[in-house]
């Protein structure tokens, strides 16, 4: 704040100009269509390439090795340094689900000894009598930040560190985050977490913001060998997902459903949504979490009422 002696008025003006410059807001980047993920668990092979690609691109430290015994899932949860996490849910021995047409092998035994018999192989229509999936299942699911349309972490953040980018993704600006932790309790999915071993800030999936700015897809989507993780415009992904669910239902996979593709969850849906093969609770996902900000109006109202009552009581009892 040095002011040149002998030129107080001009120095002061220059200083004010400088300050105003740094406070001037940059024009926002041009808006893009909303981008997100469609994670289709019916295609996931549990290879964990997504987990590793994310670690490698973002140079995140490895978690302490810990053999959890939870099937093949030893990383266990999303965290400050794990932004893609693959779950494994074993459902062996569930028993055969009800089928509309009972399965019966029906090969004829030919008595005809003549070797001039024409080719006995039947003409078949596409698709055989095999079910789309085994009745024994091992569900595999690559969990990630949902980049909610109405993100509770974004609403809870008191410093403005959490913003929505031009891609409509939810992003934590690390140079602003003060590690207060309000976002952590607000997230109903347990995604965002504080890096207590490191910088004590909140971290989560950035939807590879730096890659998006460079015009390339996120690391996990690029690494996924089966395109279980699809990246693109949210509207297009949702249309594609509807078709995929339709196809699965046609093939008898009645349990297939979308999670977060409509507006049900958090009053706006998820920009990073999923195709699940069972109830959300099976994947440790809340069926329909309430928005924490729903509590703001009633909580504020009752706070004001309580304040008014206490104020009146104060006036009444301490009139003297």
């Amino acid at each position: 704040m040095a002011v040149e002696s002998g030129k107080p008025l001009r120095g002061g003006l220059a200083f004010v100009k400088e300050t105003m410059l740094s406070l001037r807001k940059e024009p926002p980047p041009p808006p893009q269509p909303a981008m997100g993920f469609f994670t289709d668990t019916s295609l996931c092979i549990g290879c964990k390439a997504c987990e590793i690609a994310c670690k490698q691109w973002n140079q995140l430290p490895a978690t302490q090795p810990f053999w959890s015994g939870t099937s093949y899932d030893n990383t266990q949860q999303l965290g400050a340094t794990t932004w893609r996490h693959v779950q494994f849910i074993e459902q062996i021995g569930r028993g055969q689900p009800e089928r509309s047409a009972p399965y019966k092998p029906a090969l004829p035994l030919l008595d005809d000894q003549s070797l001039e018999a024409k080719n006995a192989l039947p003409e078949t229509a596409p698709g055989t009598a095999l079910p789309f999936f085994n009745s024994d299942r091992w569900l595999m699911h690559s969990d990630v930040c949902k980049h909610c349309a109405n993100a509770p972490c974004h609403e809870a953040c008191p410093t403005g560190a959490i913003i929505r980018t031009e891609f409509d993704t939810v992003y934590v600006q690390q140079d602003i985050c003060n590690g207060c932790g309000y976002c952590i309790v607000a997230c109903p999915f347990g995604v965002i977490a504080r890096d207590d071993q490191g910088d004590h800030h909140a971290h989560k999936c950035t939807l590879c913001y730096d890659r998006l700015k460079g015009g390339i897809e996120p690391a996990c989507a690029k690494a996924c060998p089966t395109d279980s993780i699809l990246f693109g415009e949210v509207a297009q992904l949702k249309a594609h997902a509807q078709e995929r669910v339709g196809l699965l239902h046609q093939r008898g996979v009645d349990e297939a459903r979308l999670y977060g593709a409509d507006d049900t969850i958090l009053d706006g849906g998820l920009n990073s949504f999923f195709l699940l093969l069972d109830e959300p609770e099976v994947y440790n996902l809340p069926q329909n979490p309430p928005r924490p900000s729903n509590h703001v109006a009633p909580a504020s109202f009752w706070t004001i009422v309580a304040a008014a009552i206490l104020g009146l009581m104060g006036i009444l009892f301490f009139r003297e």
């Binding site: 964990k48 490895a62 053999w67 030893n74």
Partner: peptide
């Protein structure tokens, strides 16, 4: 085999990210 490691481990058991996936 598992997906996370490769044969007897020379190319994978020196890699902390992979060891976190299958530690033992």
């Amino acid at each position: 085999r598992l997906t996370e490691h490769h044969v007897s481990g020379p190319m994978t058991r020196w890699m902390p990210w992979l060891n976190a996936l299958q530690p033992a």
